[in-house]
Design a binder for these strands. Structure first.
Lengths: 141, 141
DNA sequence: TTAAATAGATATCCTAAGTATACTAGTATC
DNA sequence: GATACTAGTATACTTAGGATATCTATTTAA
């Protein structure tokens, strides 16, 4: 475990790097709204890309907010709407290259949850590491 | 870079692990509210722990919401109020061991922002890796 | 000694974000 | 012809968060 006492600011951004804005603030402007991260979980991790599938896999989320979040994520280039068929409209929401880079964020959230919320997350209540949950991350294809 | 095409679900949670709830959902219930992550950035990364210091370092955040978030984070054990002095009350909000484990989440958010939002984040607009920003992460003390 | 500034919060009001419920159009299936 | 699927919309309502002012207690400065 890391000790905080070694330095005033444990993690200090490299002094020569001039920041205009905090990256966390900027990213949270994009990912910080309610449901956004859960929608990305479905699209990026579970490969669920259809509107009604998303409605079903996140039942508390209403279609109104879902379409708002999808359009927001599309606008900022994290997902894209692939028109499978027109009339009737069939859309598949997929992740972009940029969206692919949010997966490490999702993984760090899962790691935190698997360690500290094992009671609510796992049926056997046993905390797990991210490597236990995703063994393929150790031996990449 | 990872390729998505190799498998239906690129990241599949190990089949034998029985989930009660999705860890992302559970964690977002704790960290998902507006301002929470930014407050944790200040406390965990910048070691800003005083109420009025937090007010000043996040000017758009009102005291009302700040105290709500601090109490929420305290309740779930991510931060704790260290009473520096009683009458008048002097409090230092510090991170707990559990709170320490949210730092990887913050770091993955910073990494994403430093790569994809360089324009808004850095004065020179040049994307950076997390190792460029935090060289000490490569050579831990 | 009185005012100003600091600390850590609260209270009130009001708007913006999100929720509930129902509904749309177009097509396929029973 | 009824039902159910697709991908969304519309309207009304509730709650979370923002704006602003205030609170108690203490220290500092004039």
């Amino acid at each position: 475990m890391l000790k905080a006492s070694n330095s005033e600011a444990e993690y200090a951004i490299y002094a020569a790097v001039k920041l205009k804005n905090c990256p966390i603030k900027v990213v949270m402007g994009v990912l910080g709204k309610k449901w956004t991260v859960l929608i990305l979980r479905e699209i990026a991790l579970h490969k669920i890309g259809r509107f009604n599938q998303l409605c079903r896999s996140i039942p508390e989320l209403t279609p109104r907010v879902l379409i708002m979040r999808l359009h927001e994520l599309e606008k900022c280039g994290i997902i894209q709407a692939v028109i499978v068929k027109d009339k009737p409209r069939f859309v598949r929401w997929t992740i972009t290259e940029k969206g692919h880079d949010v997966i490490p964020i999702l993984m760090s959230i899962i790691a935190f949850g698997a360690k500290w919320y094992a009671d609510e997350v796992f049926e056997d209540h046993r905390p797990r590491t991210i490597n236990e949950l995703y063994p393929e991350l150790n031996s990449p294809r």
